[in-house]
Design a binder for these strands. Structure first.
Lengths: 252, 252
DNA sequence: ATACAAAAATTGTTGAACAGTCTGGACTCG
DNA sequence: CGAGTCCAGACTGTTCAACAATTTTTGTAT
């Protein structure tokens, strides 16, 4: 039974004032619960990318992926647009999308931003801010994951910890931006091997930081964080350099 | 002549290592020159939104808009995803997209971010940084526009000036984020009337700031900027309050 | 091997179709 | 008159099939 939709609508009323109707539900955005297929697919691809199932630089074929994920090409393209804006994928006209390949300058930029955002955010922290509880919860989680040798979990907990720091600034837009940057950082992590070496040194520093904040000593916490970030950047840059030189030597 | 595409590709090789081939052209990203239809359409809608042709809160019908812009619904949906990520549009499940409606808290958040980013960025500025030239060019443009009574142009120049400040931080991601926030701010501007009152007071402060930077006095510049931002926020908040109360009185 | 043309595969974009959801009005029942 | 119910119409969510434009691969002659 055909149901012709569009019909003969004159292209006049493209827009209609929508000020009147009271909004029914504002639907709070606690990491919005995936309402549409595209978002669900985006989440799956995101997961594949940061878990390393999709390696940086690899080409994502529209047909192959749409078959694998059981969605239409159109829907998949919507997803691609999403993830491209997030920085996880890279578009090349007429050639398709690729998983973004972080470079040295990517890492440098990410850490520049982390310093730029996290340090002031932490320095102005109030000990009773709700995000402090999240910080504490994250370090606890990190300790548990370490004891279980779950280093991917440690990585997640670490990201969560620093996301909580940014929440101290009480800016939803800033938090969203930081989440995006974190995603890119995870992409870098996936590129590197030996996650223990990468994460272990920082668990204790995080603990120290949250303790200082809880005690109302935000300035001291910020100082520790500054050292943390500088050290982490060095670690990751050198780890990256090792991997990069290895693969350019035709190791692959 | 039928041309069956997908065919019988086994869903195995979704991904292929792509490390080998040397990149042909890296295509520098000087605000990427609109390669695809979706990007072009996105630009047009963006323009419509910030120029006030599409007012906040209005519903964008997929069929109507796709007819007006002469693109298919599928393409338009890609565009919607783009602009939603940018914060210009808002999605509501099964109800479609609406032009985002800035609220008081939007303005507050935007200015919180501006302080957060612009002040440190300016404070650490080096007088010979290329972005300083852009700052100077922007204030010049603003003066010209003022003399021509082109207050929309003044607004653009002002945005450009502050974008240049952010460029001082040398972080592409930060600059991109700031550009996005600026877009939302323009949305707010569109909501307010009397642009002269809104922009005129700040032209001279911008001039003062760039002069200080050129003379190597970044700290002083940062102080002026801080005052600027505080004042601008107050101005805009009160202007917004006037408009909001007027429209809620059933003025429309 | 190298260069070049034909063929194959992929992306870019469209139009139609249909299922699911929301909206507003007609209708009914107090 | 007002509140609840049901229904049809409109719109979004998603898929499919097709074709033009472009890139990549392949085959062949030099």
């Amino acid at each position: 039974m055909a149901k012709p939709i569009g019909g003969t609508k004159t292209a006049a009323s493209i827009e209609e004032k929508g000020r009147g109707r009271p909004i029914k539900r504002v639907r709070e955005k606690t990491s919005e619960p995936i309402q549409t297929l595209a978002e669900a697919v985006a989440a799956r691809i995101r997961e594949k990318v940061i878990s390393g199932k999709l390696t940086p630089g690899s080409h994502l074929s529209e047909i192959a992926l749409s078959e694998e994920l059981q969605v239409s090409r159109n829907t998949l393209r919507e997803v691609f647009r999403l993830l491209t804006k997030e920085g996880l994928l890279r578009y090349e006209a007429n050639r398709g999308v690729f998983v973004a390949t972080p470079s040295m300058s990517t890492i440098i930029d990410i850490y520049r931003i982390r310093r730029f955002i996290e340090i002031p955010s932490l320095a102005q922290a109030h000990p009773r801010h709700p995000a402090v509880k999240k910080m504490r919860a994250s370090v606890d989680a990190a300790h548990r994951c370490r004891d279980a040798d779950d280093w991917l979990g440690v990585g997640s907990a670490d990201i969560g910890f620093h996301a909580a720091i940014v929440e101290l600034a009480d800016s939803p837009r800033l938090a969203g931006f930081y989440a995006q940057v974190s995603l890119e950082l995870r992409l870098v992590f996936g590129l590197l091997q030996d996650p223990e070496f990468l994460h272990a040194p920082f668990i204790d520093q995080n603990t120290l930081i949250v303790t200082q904040v809880e005690n109302g000593n935000s300035a001291a916490a910020a100082e520790i964080l500054e050292a943390y970030l500088a050290q982490a950047e060095r670690f990751i840059l050198s780890a990256y350099a090792r991997v990069a030189s290895a693969s350019s030597r035709g190791f692959e």
